[in-house]
Amino acid sequence: MRKPSPGALLLAVIPFVAMCFSVALWDRIEPMVFGLPFNLFWLIAWIVLSSGCMWLAYRLECARATATERAP
């Protein structure tokens, strides 16, 4: 089975760090952003940013797939 590229894996680590491991840094109420407590705002922002990360990973994998097809 073809292994995922290191670039794609790195892009996947970013959301994990942002939404999971760094919880102690962003789990607070102040400053409120757009009327939301900071922790809720942070997670909502990262839902969108994670989708962006995966889009980049997708582009990467697609580019790699075409490259391997051309040079078998």
């Binding site: 995922p4 794609a8 996947a12 959301p15 994990f16 939404m19 809720l40 990973a57």
Partner: peptide, 28 residues
């Protein structure tokens, strides 16, 4: 209260994980 926020994080990260296993599972 606060602990419920885990739901937003885990659902998003689950799709990140899926990117690396579902296509392979499909292939198999």
């Amino acid at each position: 209260g606060g602990p419920t926020l885990y739901v937003l994080a885990y659902l998003t990260l689950a799709y990140v994980v899926s990117f690396f296993i579902l296509p392979q599972i499909w292939e198999a």
